[in-house]
Design a protein around this nucleic acid. Structure first.
Lengths: 218, 218
DNA sequence: TTTTGATTGTTACTTTTTTCACAAATTCTT
DNA sequence: AAGAATTTGTGAAAAAAGTAACAATCAAAA
């Protein structure tokens, strides 16, 4: 449908990380090559869709052979920006912020966490792993000094809008928003990616209430 | 396009929780009525889309007036299953499981958490808030004894598949999956709702890498 | 009470997304 | 080495989702 240059649809973008994840899994299992059909079966998609998706970025496969797992994984990783050396900072070292710093593998996704911020004086000055915790008052100065690609918003919802605007003003490219708030930023080119637990659980609530719900339809 | 009985598309289902959230917000601000146009503007959608979405479930508005915020919120809440008295149990009381029990407002989404399970003997027998922690060995017995609608999967990825199958065998209707694994269950009518942090962050990574990315297109 | 203005419910249309189909290319088998 | 079996890349068709348009209806104003 389209080659390089044309805009890639959101639906495709959302599938790319899944491909990457599946290919990582396959590589781990020592699988060297895979066909669109086999991959489709693994992931509950159609072969056609996978080929069409990959076609957006050019041909990575070989007719009669399929796709080389390692190579395709590399390609998709590059498309996703894994090798771009992205940096992230955490805003709000509460339960969730703490859990993310400690357990989430930012590195696997091409990000390094360079700092965290909170208002709690008992946290400020301490470290979680290698991540230094600063006071939120130091945020603006930090953003002037270092390049930060993504701000991770794990503050209570009342502070979300204010913090988000500070991140945007400070020049971040994206905000990973865990605060259950619809952010309306005054910054058109900052991308907001929402992780709304509530929305997810409510969607599940709806689906388990339906007498028959085709689970492939997701 | 369709009335009661016909299947509601996934796209619509994903918007319902957002409507519910926005209406809750509006109610909090004391707004009594709202038009599809105003709601659309608030949410970055089109009025047409909102009316079309609501039309799936029947007419909740009034011509020349708009929608009553309180009533529409109630209706959507009911559609989502907020009043169904859903129960959930937590599998895995690590950092994330702990954070969810302690901070996530299950009640606001119509769920009550009735138990948590872990393998760590230092946790078993203790409580987080009102939630009792049991040993995972007791899971099957628990599922035989109590009705559990949703299992929340916050175990390490290696245990995810096994635990998910136990939940499914135990008769849960849905699994809220935080383990970064594609679950392939042997249970066609169990709904799996994935919360893949990695996928979300990688999608953001892609989008901040694109020179121009229309952020409305989400 | 009548008129004007606003806004929904609903059908029709447009755009986007997914699926289908098949030639071209490659591997595998004999 | 030749033929059979795969499997991709890619354009076209089908399906789904989103947008537009407008008659019907109600509220508010005159």
């Amino acid at each position: 449908m389209k080659k390089t240059g044309e805009k890639v649809s959101n639906a495709v973008i959302r599938r790319l990380p899944r491909y990457y994840r599946q290919l990582t899994e396959l590589r781990l299992r020592g699988v060297v090559r895979i066909s669109s059909g086999a991959l489709a079966k693994d992931m509950g998609l159609t072969a056609s869709q996978i080929r069409q998706d990959l076609f957006c970025f050019g041909g990575f496969g070989q007719q009669g052979y399929g796709y080389n797992v390692e190579k395709l994984r590399e390609e998709i990783g590059a498309i996703l920006g894994i090798n771009r050396g992205n940096t992230a900072i955490i805003l709000g070292v509460g339960n969730l912020g703490h859990a993310l710093i400690q357990n989430f593998k930012f590195g696997n996704n091409g990000f390094s966490v360079t700092a965290a911020f909170d208002v709690d004086d008992s946290l400020v000055g301490t470290k979680i792993g290698a991540v230094q915790i600063y006071h939120v008052d130091e945020l603006e100065e930090y953003l002037r000094t270092y390049r930060v690609d993504v701000g991770v918003l794990t503050v209570p919802r009342v502070f979300a809008a204010e913090m988000a605007q500070k991140l945007a003003d400070g020049g971040v490219k994206g905000i990973w928003n865990f605060a259950n708030v619809e952010l309306k930023l005054n910054a058109p080119d900052v991308i907001v990616e929402n992780v709304h637990f509530s929305d997810s659980l409510l969607a599940l609530s709806y689906m388990i209430g339906e007498p028959v719900y085709d689970e492939e339809n997701k």
